[in-house]
Amino acid sequence: MTELGQLEDQWQEFEKRKVQIVAISVEDRDNARVTQTEYPHLLVVYDDDKKLSETLDVLHPNSAPDGGDTAAPTTILVDSQGVVRWLFRPDRFLTRLQPSEVLEAIDQKMPRE
């Protein structure tokens, strides 16, 4: 996956900043295992019942290939106290943040405590 692969490639930069990437999707456990193996430095979280995504309101209704709901690509920075520091959602789902943009956001919105 382009997005996760790019984040995985930059794992040392995230580690330097003591930042853990949590990759969340509505895939099932079997797929999540595969994803975790492919991207060992990311923490892969699956949400096959969509409860987490509904709680945080990050679903894009009727946009999955089968007509169901799937994730609206969203990036949320959370500091070590569990406080949200930044939320980014592109206006179109083809757009993704580049890892350099995520790192820049971390340095700007969430400077080290």
Binding site: E3, L4, T70, A71, V78, D79, G82
Partner: peptide, 27 residues
């Protein structure tokens, strides 16, 4: 609450500690 690939729970309380987190919702 979500789940790690090993089946264990992952909750918001785990975001507190010595690390900061980036939650990436991907499709």
């Amino acid at each position: 609450q979500g789940n790690r690939s090993d089946g264990s729970a992952f909750t918001n309380s785990e975001l507190k500690g010595d690390r900061r987190h980036v939650l990436v919702f991907f499709r």
